[in-house]
Design a protein around this nucleic acid. Sequence first.
DNA 1: ACTCCGATTGTT
DNA 2: ACAATCGGAGTA
Length: 146
Amino acid sequence: MGPSDPASHVATKSGRTPRNAIMFGPAGFAYVYLSYGVHWFLNVVTDAEGEAGAVLIRAVDPLDGMQVMSARRDLASGPGRVGQAFGVTATLNGHDLAVPLLQLLAGWSLGPSDVGESQRIGITRAKERLLRFFVLNNGSVSRPRV
DNA sequence: ACTCCGATTGTT
DNA sequence: ACAATCGGAGTA
């Protein structure tokens, strides 16, 4: 939602800044930022060039390269863990997600009944908006901390 | 220049 | 419940 979402990095009065500049570019690029000075968060830019918008990847379900069956459940459940699992750092900010180094590919097919939506996690502004989307009945989906 | 705090996580 | 850890953004 970009500017119309109070929880977005582009929602401030300053609008475009050095940090969020990638969000104003074309879709399909990585927007990476450091959270709490600790975790690298991976976002995918979604809107057309000139229109700021991005989606945070909060979890990933490891399908290939998981010699680690035991770790499967929580290996990449949580945005900080996604960053850690893929080795995301500042150098990936602005990365073209069509390039194999870190690439978005078509996944298995999902219908509307496979996708859940809920309030977002960990934010203070615009909590009520249902802008968190997840695969239903998938163990890798991240959850709020109890 | 200085303050506040953040789409968190691991440990106590 | 709390520390870790740091830079963006707002205020002065």
